[in-house]
């Protein structure tokens, strides 16, 4: 609240002097007549002791908080970068960011969920599944509600991919023995049923390359890269394809 001074004029002994010290050398232009020294003294109204102590206490707490903040700051920057990378479908970079957070905070549930997603899109299914198991076994790893859905989605995709393993093995064998039409047919079915089966997609691209169906093989690579712009195997396959086409 700002309130103007009480009517000091009434308190003044001499109307043409500083009301505090009666000095005739008062500052002009002010309603309240005060000399320069008295005005300065009044403007430096002292802080009460308990206010000063409170400010010192708060300052100390702030210093402690600031000390630990340097660790939090780097982790928070990594977290936000990781989220941005994941949103931009740059999952290799996202994986690096979330791994660096988990080095500092090994029990950070949200980072674990994001790392699980990054592992999945980077075709590191075993690593992703071990995180999922850890999250399921350890309910104390707290993470936001919206991330629960992400874990459930991964579980469905993992189950779907895992169920395709026998057929995938057969297709791999066919590809090795150069039975390309057979491998092609199995892999097409697998990829159609589960477009996020990265291994099946990669094998299909390889198979199509060997069958010299380059355009189709490229479209398979591009489809994989649309899910993850940095999927190393897809980038390598695309590079091989482009080199072959040249």
């Amino acid at each position: 609240m700002i309130e103007n001074a009480p009517n000091e004029q009434e308190e003044q002994e001499c109307p043409d002097a500083c009301f505090q010290c009666n000095s005739p050398d008062y500052e002009p232009g002010y309603t309240v007549r005060l000399c320069k020294t008295c005005r300065k003294r009044f403007s430096r109204y002292p802080l009460k002791k308990n206010i000063l102590l409170g400010a010192i206490g708060l300052g100390t707490l702030f210093a402690v908080s600031l000390y630990s903040f340097q660790y939090h700051f780097k982790a928070a920057i990594s977290y936000e970068k990781g989220i941005t990378y994941a949103d931009n479908r740059d999952f290799v970079s996202a994986e690096n960011e979330f791994q660096s957070i988990l080095k500092r905070y090994p029990q950070n549930g949200a980072s674990k969920v994001h790392l699980l997603t990054a592992y999945f899109y980077n075709n590191k299914l075993e690593a992703a599944d071990s995180i999922r198991n850890e999250l399921e076994k350890n309910p104390s790893l707290r993470y936001k509600e919206d991330l629960t859905e992400e874990v459930a989605t991964f579980k469905d995709l993992w189950d779907k991919t895992h169920a395709q393993n026998p057929d995938l093995a057969t297709a791999g064998e066919c590809l090795e023995r150069n039975r390309l039409p057979e491998a092609d047919s199995i892999l097409r079915k697998l990829v159609h049923a589960n477009p996020t089966n990265w291994t099946a997609s990669l094998l299909l691209s390889k198979c199509l390359r060997q069958e010299q169906k380059y355009t189709e093989a490229l479209s398979i690579c591009d489809r994989m890269l649309s899910y993850n712009h940095q999927l190393p195997a897809a980038l390598a396959e695309k590079a091989t394809l482009l080199k072959t086409v040249k």
């Binding site: 702030f62 982790a75 928070a76």
Partner: peptide, 15 residues
């Protein structure tokens, strides 16, 4: 200024 170093671990990292 006072809330900033605390809000980051609480609201971003949940720590």
């Amino acid at each position: 200024t006072i809330a900033f170093p605390a809000a980051v671990p609480v609201f971003i990292l949940g720590e």
